[in-house]
Design a binder for these strands. Structure first.
Lengths: 238, 238
DNA sequence: ATTGCAACATACTCAGTAGTATGTTTAATC
DNA sequence: GATTAAACATACTACTGAGTATGTTGCAAT
């Protein structure tokens, strides 16, 4: 980082909680721009987020320059820095969006199944399918997990990173909890929930490494892969 | 990369095969230095390799500077560039060493077990244990897998990368082959060997993300984790 | 004793890149 | 229709970091 943005000065300072909530989130205008005749307000950050996710997936956080993202957008740095304070903030926002989609899908699956094992199965399948459908965003999430020791972050950014890590731990805890429920209702016989879950999530998350959608790939195909992966984690190969 | 080293000039040129074999490998002196009174020749690259593996694991390839590695060695760039032509070559050599250790362990396990499933189980356990025992090197291997599209490599480096990817594909094929053998001898009922193996290897490889050895951690503990992970992949959780 | 090379250290170059400062256009509000 | 802010583009700064060129030291073979 060329020059650490001074934490003081430049107008009003953000309070502790504001900084924690706002950091990494796109800057919202005070007066949102609306489309020509339409009344719908436009969010110009979605394109940036999509392209950034793609770049981060292909070249990694450090390997991606803001100019790379801008070039792929057919724009310049100015557009990106208009919405994001820093490259790290942009990365975090992609990460956050990925986690949001993942959480949404898995939370929905938690309401299905008649025993712990069946619920877990549904959660794993939902997780896998979400990975395959949002591979760029989720590849960034996977990177983010491995990134929590990068150190070279500012004070505010470390806060956001802690928040993200907390969300991830919470996410993993969902699986452990359902696993334990399955142990109690007798539908799961394996012991050591912690290690078992880490293995299962690894099998799913690994798709971020090997899976790339073929052009024109159908949803059914993705579902088939997701079901296959989830089933193997529940039933094994015997 | 500041200046791509010119492929021509500077003395004798390497032949195609020499370049393929030598690239990424440490430069060997024409007259090996020996210890004081001892007759044993010394390999000064092992320290470099160990430290580099540690750095690459903690901060990633792009996030690690040669100066970082040198500083951790209590040395300067000069020492590293004396043995390695480039940062990429250093990374590749760590990768190669990691794959060597992994292959060694898994190959040994292939001679055990009385059916496909048992052999596969032994291979997975050996794989997992090797990961836990060489987490830095294997974390680099995992990074390398995800790196094959980084693009920004020179001609010679791309050759080495292709070689590495070939080795990895060969490695994965070992598991698929044994899987199919298990399907034929009836010890494995699951279908779709390719996806099943990708899931299983993912569960094991994921240790590169979450596992960090506690100080004073015993071998038995590592073995327990490895056995647990492997068993889950074979038997599932039912 | 001298020579030669390995094994580094030191000092430098230069391109890429994060972030900033500032200009320009367009749409909404009054 | 004048004003104002959003939504960018352009131009610039400053620094990091890969790779190089060159110096220095110490062992080993002759």
């Amino acid at each position: 980082m060329a020059n650490a943005r001074s934490e003081v000065g430049e107008g009003r300072e953000l309070s502790e909680t504001e900084a924690l909530v706002e950091a990494g989130r796109p800057r919202r205008p005070t007066r949102a721009r609306r489309k020509k005749g339409d009344g719908e307000p436009v969010d110009n950050t979605v394109d940036i987020l999509d392209v950034a996710a793609q770049c981060f997936m292909e070249m990694g956080f450090q390997g991606t320059s803001i100019d790379d993202v801008a070039r792929r957008l057919g724009a310049t740095k100015g557009r990106i820095y208009h919405y994001y304070r820093s490259k790290t903030d942009l990365f975090f926002d992609v990460h956050r969006e990925g986690m949001r989609r993942l959480n949404e899908a898995v939370q929905a699956a938690m309401n299905t199944g008649s025993c712990g094992r069946e619920t877990l199965h549904a959660m794993l399948e939902a997780h896998a399918l979400t990975m395959l459908q949002n591979i760029a965003y989720l590849a960034v999430v996977v990177q983010g997990v491995h990134m929590h020791r990068l150190g070279a972050t500012t004070l505010a950014q470390r806060r956001v990173l802690d928040e993200i890590m907390a969300i991830r731990r919470e996410f993993e805890r969902l699986f452990v909890d359902v696993f334990r429920r399955g142990q109690q209702d007798g539908s799961i016989r394996a012991e050591n929930a912690s290690i078992a879950v880490k293995g299962m999530l690894g099998a799913i998350n690994w798709t971020a490494i090997w899976y790339r959608p073929r052009p024109g790939e159908t949803l059914e195909h993705k579902q088939k892969i997701a079901r296959e992966l989830a089933t193997r984690q529940i039933e094994g190969i015997v």
